[in-house]
Design a protein around this nucleic acid. Sequence first.
DNA 1: TCTTGACCTCAACTTATGCTGAGGTTCTAT
DNA 2: ATAGAACCTCAGCATAAGTTGAGGTCAAGA
Lengths: 152, 152
Amino acid sequence: MADEGGGPSRFLSVGEVARRAGVAVSALHFYETKGLIQSLRSAGNQRRYPRGVLRRVAVIKVAQRAGVPLAEIATALAALPDGRAPTAADWAAMSARWKADLEARIERLGRLRDQLSLCIGCGCLSLDTCPLRNADDRLGAAGPGARLLDPG
Amino acid sequence: MADEGGGPSRFLSVGEVARRAGVAVSALHFYETKGLIQSLRSAGNQRRYPRGVLRRVAVIKVAQRAGVPLAEIATALAALPDGRAPTAADWAAMSARWKADLEARIERLGRLRDQLSLCIGCGCLSLDTCPLRNADDRLGAAGPGARLLDPG
DNA sequence: TCTTGACCTCAACTTATGCTGAGGTTCTAT
DNA sequence: ATAGAACCTCAGCATAAGTTGAGGTCAAGA
C-alpha cells in the first residue's frame, strides 16, 4: 500500500475499509453511487478513503439494522456539513430520529394486531363493517410495483 | 350473464368477483397462478367462481394487511380440505397464527428499539462491543436481493 | 347481424431494495 | 519482468406483488 507519509496510513483502500467495516467491497461501491460515502481517487483511479468513512459505515450498518432504508440514511448523512464523518452528537440526533420511527412502526403493528384480535372468530369477513377490511385501506390505490410489508 | 337455474346466480364471473371483493381482475388472475384461488371454466373458457371465493379473497386481503406474504397465505389456504372456502373456524385458526407472527415482529422491533436506545449517545459505534453492530447479525448473510424492512 | 364490452393468454414492465458478477486494469512483491 | 491480488466499471440479479398491453375470443343487447 503506497503510504503518503510516515506513521499510520492516512488513507484507506476499498479493501481495507471493507475488511475493517465488515462489508463487501461491492457494497461500498454501491453506497458510493447512492451518495452515502465519498472517495478520492489515486493516480490509477482507485478509491482512497479518509478514516472517517469507517464511522460513516458504522452508522449505515446500525441504521440498517434498525430498519432504516438506505435512501433515508443517505439524506441524514448528506445533512452533515462538508460531508464530514458523524460525531457523537450527530449520531445522537440521527438515532433519536430513527428510534422515533421505530416506535411509530411498533405502534402501527400494535394497532393492526388489535384489529386482528377483534376479527378473529367474529366471522365479520363477509361484512362491509370489518375494520381490517375497510379502515385505512391504502392498498391497491398505488399503481404498479411492489408494496412493502410494513409501509410507513 | 347466463344463469344456470333460477334465483341468484350460483357462479360469479371475474368481473363480478373483482367488483364485489374490491380487487382488480388482474389481481384475481395473479392469485390464481399462485394457487390462492381456483376457478371453473365456462364453455367459452371464461372463469366461473363459486361464491366461496369472496370469502377467500376477504381472507387474503386481511392477511395482507397484517403483513402476511402471499406465499404464506397460499400455504394456509391450501391446507383447507378440497380447496373449500374458509369457515369461521378455519379463519380463527389462521388468523391466530398470523397474530402470533405479528406479535413476534413487534417484539423483535421492541428489542431493536431498546438496543438503539442504549447506543444513542454512547458513541460506541467505533467499538467492537456495540450490541447493534454485532449481536444477531444476520444482514449480509442472505445472498443477493432486497431485504424487507422488517424480516421475520 | 353487428357492435360493444367483458374475457382470454402470455410476456414484459413497474417500483423498491440491495447488492453481485463478468470482463478488463492496476499494484505490489519477488 | 511478471504473476497474482486488488481494483475498476457497468450490467444484471433476486424478490414481492401485481399492472399493462398486444392480439384475439365470447356474449348479449339493439
